[in-house]
Design a protein around this nucleic acid. Structure first.
Lengths: 138, 138
DNA sequence: TAAATTTGTTATGCAAGACTAACATTTTAA
DNA sequence: TTAAAATGTTAGTCTTGCATAACAAATTTA
């Protein structure tokens, strides 16, 4: 039942919920609204959709909590984000901001398979700093 | 005047127009419809938008041609596509199909700066086949 | 604790991008 | 050279994701 494909947009909302809850133990709609630069009304709408898909628990004026399925999904998204950002930053030498911004978008697109390969590639590169240094000084 | 930001969707249409014209000297709406898996009606709509932005020349029941600005833009998109696909395929060892499919989406997102870095990285890797082989046999 | 402020919700609307169905035009072939 | 088939267009609808404005509830503070 709690298995439904999320749009990029809903993934962003879920990721935000997860991060805020992990940071502060709770999250309010207005914080999400500020983090994602959207109106409070859009947040309400998105939270209802996430609740309907059973990724969060939520009802009118209620506290927001995240379900097990929500945690799992959020961690997958965040993991994708981190692997992509790390490739841009640590391998290609892109600035942290640009790496993060682009990772934020690619995280919704990249397949599990490519993610795994990219993750091993990151590890392989960090085990061979010489190679990366030669690339950077090229 | 012929400078307007394109949505991912319109970039796909433009890319398809460019590729088909390069391949056959001309392109018909029905071919675009098949290539992109959309209805004929959607193609009409997209072509009107591209014409309005001056990336193609087009009018009711007229032949489709591409403008200079359209060619420039299409080549940029295709270059992005190729660099990304090449990274997935040649560096990470992803299958051609999966590499192409994912590249098709990332091409609309990646910045010029990251593209350039990725492009040099591809070249650097192909100049050091040893490194890539060690990664693949890891 | 009552008034003011903040936060959340609802109703409504808009834009993009897709669809189907009906119609128009063009092309093919009998 | 017409009749049939293929292609292109238009009109109307749907979905997603966003917005604003007005209202409701909760929270803060005087």
């Amino acid at each position: 039942m709690p298995e439904a494909k999320l749009s990029s947009s809903l993934e962003d909302y879920l990721e935000c919920v997860y991060n805020r809850i992990n940071l502060n133990g709770a999250v309010k709609a207005i914080e999400i609204s500020k983090d994602l630069n959207v109106s409070r009304a859009s947040v309400t709408e998105a939270l209802n959709k996430l609740a309907q898909k059973e990724y969060i628990n939520y009802g009118r004026y209620e506290m927001i909590s995240i379900t097990e399925a929500g945690i799992k999904k959020a961690r997958e998204i965040i993991n994708k984000h981190n692997v992509i950002q790390s490739f841009f930053e640590d391998v290609l030498g892109i600035s942290s901001t640009e790496a993060a911004n682009t990772a934020c978008q690619i995280e919704h697109i990249i397949t599990e398979n490519i993610l795994e390969k990219l993750s091993s590639f990151n590890k392989f590169c960090s085990s061979e700093p010489d190679f990366i240094n030669r690339f950077k000084n090229k």
